[in-house]
Amino acid sequence: MKGIAFVWQLVEVALAIALAPLLTGWIAQCRSWLQNRSAPPLTQPYRMLRKLFHKEAVVADHASPLFRAAPYVLFGAMVLAAAIVPTIVTDLPFARAADAIALIGLFATARVCQALAAMDIGTAFGSMGARREMMIGFLAEPAILMVFFNAFLLFGTTALPGVVDHYASHPSVIDPSVIFAAIGFVMVLLAENARIPIDNPATHLELTMIHEAMVLEYSGRHLALIEWASSLKLFNYTCIGIALFLPWGIAIHGTSFGYVLFALAALIAKLAVCGAALALIESLSAKLRLFRAPEFLALAFLFAVLGLLVHLLMGANTSA
């Protein structure tokens, strides 16, 4: 039984690595449709990765080893996160390595690595991007922590597999605090993954960019790894959201093949819906000025805290 768990763990990680660019491609496609543009094919991110991997890597003359190591570390951190977030089964040996709060730490590690690498070359844009990314980071962290605080109050655990198990054993109720937390979470997701109200993943407009400014100096395989890691980050965040708010269908204990196939189908359906929803949100909103970002994330924080308070006020008989 223990062995099979490791197998599922590996399957899940491989699945995440393989599916992540697809999600990015799907969101890009939906956005194009919504904006009346002809959409790039769904496999565009894979082609992009292939192209980048085969190109030669150009590295600045005075780049230090830190600059070249950062893409690998980034990718490693995101793969580890993918191993922790339950997507199709909950019986994951590595998921015990971290609860949701430790996951925030893991994402912070990746962020700091990337920011440091961006500062390594010593260009104006690199350090500007690093500074902005860290700023978004410290604004988002209180909000995401409060979201997980909500999850703890609702489910009595911050371990993601535990949350999913809780859903399975308790019939769901429409709790206002769940809705508040979900809204807050989506806002943080947009901010953390350089999506539209905060950053535009498709722009290289010099003065507004955040994420792109940090990776300007990367090329070839390094850039490919960073792009892949970004896709994985979005995938991981979406899966955290799914585990917290829409966990139906994830195989709980029955690691039989049929269950898992069903869970996989459910996962793909949910990802498709979530991706489309993200594209819709992005298409409906305008990019905020950088100094409106605190307002946006303060709003996310507010949602999460309201969820918490509403739960404390009226939570007494929710589970009754």
Partner: peptide, 11 residues
């Protein structure tokens, strides 16, 4: 449940 939701919306 519905009333709670509405109240939350009010807030």
């Amino acid at each position: 449940e519905l009333l709670k939701l509405l109240a939350a919306g009010m807030l």
